[in-house]
């Protein structure tokens, strides 16, 4: 009996040791979100779905807006399947934000999809489809290592990604995709695929007044800690057509939300920043876009008139 437990103990220790070694070597390839929950609380955040997850590189903001905000910037975006504005995301942002922040920069990337009601939602009963997904299911988003993440979100790990290393999550929360096709035909196929996806979900999802309301609350909350930007990132013409048909007054509704203390920047139809698949920017385009965005932010009256912080 004793011998058995001794062996079992050795086995468990070996497993834990190998796992730790593995995660410390390859952790950033293995999970797109784990790294978002291992930093301390942050002062400046980017929120949104995969468009901002891969398209807004915090290092660029740090460099361009140096001295004007409490930096560094941290990318707290996820993917469309779990990132929607609502009470859950607001709560998570609250946890991720350092409460002492006074002059942060908050870029909230928005799209019609991130303000929709989806299957699984019963907003009137307080039931949200996203509530048991990361980041909404994390009570402790600022711990390293983060055992809560292992317990709640083990399903997100895909260890075999180590072999291809096709993508990687950086420490500032930026998700780097290595797998961007250069071939025109492959890109066309991706466009086609995404348009199909959006068309499909526009049939099943519906615009949500509740989520709009919650976005407004998020803005009001963040405004107390700094500058809030509502950002609609570039899409392809086809995707824009689908989104416009899905939610006709989206822009005017957002302008309405912005009145509660944010600037609304709409780049949806800025076709000088072409997407490679209908809704994502590749590295070079994203850099150009980021610079343009920073120029705009730098010229906000509220920012311009402020003395640079040392």
């Amino acid at each position: 009996m004793k011998a058995f437990f001794l062996k079992l103990g050795v086995f468990v220790i070996a497993v834990v040791a190998l796992m730790t070694l593995f995660m410390s070597q390859f952790g950033q390839y293995v999970d797109y979100f784990y790294g978002k929950f291992t930093t301390p609380a942050q002062h400046s955040l980017i929120t949104g779905d995969s468009k901002s997850l891969s398209g807004l590189r915090p290092a660029l903001f740090d460099e361009q807006l140096k001295g004007q905000f409490e930096l560094p910037m941290f990318n707290y975006s996820f993917t469309m399947s779990q990132a929607v504005y609502g009470s859950c995301y607001l709560e998570s942002i609250r946890r991720k934000l350092d409460p002492d922040t006074k002059n942060g920069l908050f870029i909230l990337s928005v799209s019609p999809w991130m303000l929709s009601e989806r299957p699984g939602d019963e907003v009137e009963n307080g039931v949200f489809f996203e509530s048991d997904m990361a980041p909404h299911n994390m009570r402790f988003p600022n711990m390293k290592p983060n055992p809560e993440y292992f317990l709640r979100n083990f399903n997100n790990f895909h260890f075999k990604a180590v072999f291809r290393q096709a993508s990687r999550l950086h420490e500032d929360g930026w998700y780097e995709e290595h797998n961007v096709p250069n071939d025109e035909r492959e890109r066309a196929a991706l466009h086609h695929h995404h348009e199909g996806l959006f068309r499909q979900q526009s049939k099943i999802w519906k615009p949500s007044g509740f989520r709009m309301q919650q976005l407004k609350k998020t803005v009001s909350f963040l405004k107390k800690h700094g500058t809030v930007v509502l950002l609609r990132m570039p899409s392809s013409a086809n995707v824009n057509r689908i989104e416009d048909a899905y939610w006709q007054n989206f822009d005017s509704e957002l302008q309405q939300v912005a009145k509660s203390g944010a600037s609304y920047l709409n780049y949806a139809k800025s076709y000088q920043f072409p997407t490679f698949d209908g809704s994502h920017l590749d590295y070079d385009t994203a850099t150009a876009f980021g610079k343009a965005l920073c120029d705009t932010i730098r010229n906000f009256p509220s920012v311009k008139n402020k003395l640079p912080q040392s």
Binding site: K7, V10, F11, V15, L18, F154, N155, F157, F159, K160
Partner: peptide, 22 residues
């Protein structure tokens, strides 16, 4: 014991790395 032990470890990590967790 060594063979057994390594076999358990190998299968365990096969499951972790190659398993579809659903």
């Amino acid at each position: 014991f060594a063979v057994r032990f390594l076999a358990y470890l190998a299968i365990f990590f096969c499951i972790v790395i190659f398993g579809v967790v659903s």
